[in-house]
Design a protein around this nucleic acid. Structure first.
Length: 422
RNA sequence: GGAGAGUUGGCCGAGUAGGUUGAAGGCGCUCGCCUGCUAAGCGAGUAUACGGGCAAAACCUGUAUCGAGGGUUCGAAUCCCUCACUCUCCGCCA
């Protein structure tokens, strides 16, 4: 959510910034409502002031044994008018809020302007796609051949875009989760969180999934709970409505969770394998920091995610998303894309974003600065990494001609010392 | 799921015959004083949001907030209703 006062003072700037990310939006309605709100608020507050003053007077008189029926009658009318006015204000505020909640974040000035993914810029490249010397197989074939992935039964037991991991496949998934959590807690200074996998509506609004993207979410029937699309939601909302101690910032959390996505707009895309499932595992990195630190923290957080890929020996590149390709809440995003031989391309495996104060304003995440003043914190998060895609990348990049998969060194302690699958 | 008790400021905790209670008192914290140091002591201050004044900060001022929402009333932390959460006992359960 943008700052109402900022939008009021800089409508032109806001409009231009949002146009750069392809969001068409007129602020005239918004500005009109804002004007109305303040006007009505001013009136009703004066009325309330009078009511308070007179009511106090009535109390005083009553104590002195005097009745003031005229005053009470006057106040009865006044209270009725206040009630009407309050309702008008509530309506205007509701509409204002609706508009405000639907406006995406303003991109940071360092973000390249562009229309879509084609305008994203590669900022770093690490490792080289391997020269196999044989025809590499896609991971879904390797997985089925080794009997460690079972998509068919996933479809039977649940439905499309669900999968069973079996045997060493399941073990590998678990090993990766443990490896990543150990790395981030042990080397990168994150505190581990194990969050609820369902959250309430306010939390979904807090991080920006609702109200705009309801169709992407799984809602639990008969409750007000949603399955989390990422641990970002529960972990960022940990401090919703709180004022944090500025001395404790930055706060860094990492969290494993299952993630649930309806993938409403993704029909026909990535239909095979582990790349796009309704349920997948992810280790998420989340930070809360002071505004002046957030862009430096974004670089660090992205580096922490990259470290995972480097230790696994997976070729990747880091891309800065252009204005037109960024997510709704983000001010700046780096995607990490891992090399996938089956795609003959780099595929997103992590997305690291600085949200500025956008989520913090929605969620009321603030801190007290050195001067004792309360300010909005900045929030960040990134995948560190998506686990299913990591499994896919390992299976494809580390496959051998005989159909086996070599396990990266760093994972072997988590695999009971095993060096390969197959 | 059944029965009961609760939800007040950073924390603890008063406040139930409705009327200067945004809220006593204590703790904590900040600043000042005092003590050779430490401990203790003394004084002052210590919520947030949104309006208005203002170019703006400081500041002044108004409104709202005692779990959330609604109701009764001239006036509600105090009365009524709905919901959420917490605790205790029972049931069930990993």
């Amino acid at each position: 959510m943008l700052d109402l006062k900022f939008v009021r003072g800089n409508p032109q700037k806001v409009q231009e910034a949002l146009a750069s990310r392809g969001a068409k939006l007129s602020l005239t309605e918004f500005l009109r409502l804002d004007e109305q709100r303040r006007e009505k608020l001013f009136t009703v507050e004066q009325m309330k002031n009078r009511r308070n003053v007179v009511s106090e007077e009535i109390g005083r008189l009553k104590k002195a044994g005097k009745d003031e029926p005229d005053m009470i009658v006057e106040m009865r009318d006044l209270s009725r008018s206040i009630k009407e006015k309050d309702e008008e204000i509530k309506e205007v505020e509701g509409r204002l809020q609706e508009i405000l909640l639907d406006i995406p974040n303003i991109p940071h000035e360092s973000v390249p302007v562009g229309a879509d993914a084609a305008d994203n810029q590669v900022v770093r490249q690490w490792g080289k796609p391997r020269d196999f010397g044989f025809a590499p197989r896609p991971h879904w074939e390797i997985g089925e051949n080794l009997n460690i992935l079972d998509f068919e039964r996933g479809g039977k037991v649940t439905g499309a875009r669900f999968c069973f991991y079996k045997g060493l496949g399941a073990r590998l998934e678990r090993a990766i989760i443990s490896f990543m959590l150990d790395l981030h807690t042990g080397e990168h200074g994150y505190t581990e969180i194990f969050p609820p996998f369902m959250v309430n509506r306010d939390s979904m609004i807090g991080t920006g999934q609702l109200p705009k993207f309801a169709e992407d979410m799984f809602k639990i029937e008969g409750t007000e709970y949603y399955l989390i699309p990422t641990a970002e939601v529960p972990v960022t909302n940990l401090y919703r409505g709180e004022i944090l101690d500025g001395g404790k910032l930055p706060i860094s959390h990492c969290a494993y969770s299952a993630c649930f996505r309806a993938e409403a707009g993704a029909a026909g895309r990535d239909t095979r394998g582990l790349i796009r499932l309704h349920q997948f595992n992810k280790v998420e990195l989340v930070k809360f920091c002071k505004p002046e630190d957030s862009y430096a923290e974004l670089e660090k957080l992205t580096g922490n995610a990259e470290k995972v890929l480097q230790l696994l020996g997976l070729p990747y590149r880091a891309v800065v998303l252009c204005t037109g390709d960024m997510g709704f809440s983000s001010a700046k995003t780096y995607d990490l894309e891992v090399w996938l031989p089956s795609y003959q391309d780099y595929k997103e495996i992590s997305s690291c974003s600085n949200f500025g104060d956008f989520q913090a304003r929605r969620a009321g995440i603030r801190y007290r600065n050195d001067k004792g003043k309360v300010e909005l914190a900045h929030t960040l998060n990134g995948s560190g990494l998506a686990v299913g895609r990591t499994v896919a990348a390992i299976m494809e990049n580390c496959q051998e001609a005989d159909g086996t998969v070599t396990i990266p060194e760093v994972l072997r302690p988590y695999m009971g010392g095993l060096g390969k699958i197959g």
